[in-house]
Design a protein around this nucleic acid. Structure first.
Lengths: 151, 151
DNA sequence: AGATATCCGACCGTTTTGCTAGGATATTCT
DNA sequence: AGAATATCCTAGCAAAACGGTCGGATATCT
């Protein structure tokens, strides 16, 4: 029950893509600066997101990735599902514990599965952005350590 | 984001322990029959549960394991947490992403963490038992395939 | 003593994870 | 055309986690 770094970094990347929405694509290099994730690895995270249609890519000079929908219409659930193999937390969700076996616990896992998806689908990138701005600082330039009056 | 077989099998075992509550302990051998999990592995699942105080063990002849509380007072969450390393789905829950780093995504993971725990804590072993009896068959003897009018 | 059962730790093959490397392809600028 | 920029794509690899087995020590009952 561990979340992969793919989902972590992937969502983080999407967060910055949301912030830059409408201002042209962000390159892997730029995303790497913002998220502090290595370019090579970042590439691997971003690819599935593009494959699923959440991201659009532009090649060549000034190319990069951009959200294909406005941040308010993209949920964290979509992103995480794309990176976590559809959030299949347990196999008997897709291949039931065999027809004649009535597993007494499958019901719980199913409920958990539904719950997880619901939680993640209730959060949009726009929501994340709003929360972040409200909670802390307004500027999102530079790599993500906070220039506040921290220790 | 995969649930370990430990949690799966462990909860299953507890289900049968709940069913047998008040009728003396169940041995590993018996639990193995009921859950279709190898005795050696089952032992490993049950040990942490005992360590946490959820189960009590009796050694020697007619020994085995029993719930230390009535099934209505044991939640699935307690069991899963004991077997899934406290359900720490992500590290920044315990060691924040560094003091000066304001990770824009931590809020989500925290919310997810709380949600998962809530869902699992809303289900008691008694509840599972009731659901199972209501949904299907009343007898729980024998290994868990359903003697209904299957295939 | 002997049978039964929990305890406990080591071990081990397989899979997944987290990440790197290197090259192929497409686009733009000069 | 050609160089520069950037996405695409596949392979590889060390380390960790997973899923499970085995053998023996200890406690308890008959």
């Amino acid at each position: 029950m561990k979340l992969s770094t793919k989902a972590q970094y992937g969502l983080k990347a999407c967060f910055y893509l949301a912030e830059a929405y409408g201002q042209g694509p962000l390159s892997i290099a730029r995303l790497s600066e913002l998220t502090s994730v290595s370019p090579a690895y970042l590439e691997q995270l971003v690819m599935p997101l593009k494959r699923v249609g959440l991201l659009r890519a532009e090649r060549g000079k000034d190319g990069g990735y951009a959200l294909s929908r406005p941040p308010a219409e993209v949920t964290a659930g979509e992103i995480v599902r794309a990176l976590e193999d559809n959030l299949t937390i347990i196999d008997c969700l897709v291949t039931p514990c065999s027809a004649e076996e009535k597993c007494p616990t499958c019901a719980i896992w199913n409920r958990l599965y539904q719950g997880i998806n619901k939680i993640l689908d209730e959060v949009s990138l726009q929501g994340m952005l709003d929360d972040y701005r409200r909670a802390g600082k307004g500027d999102l330039s530079g790599p993500d350590q906070g220039p506040k009056e921290a220790s």
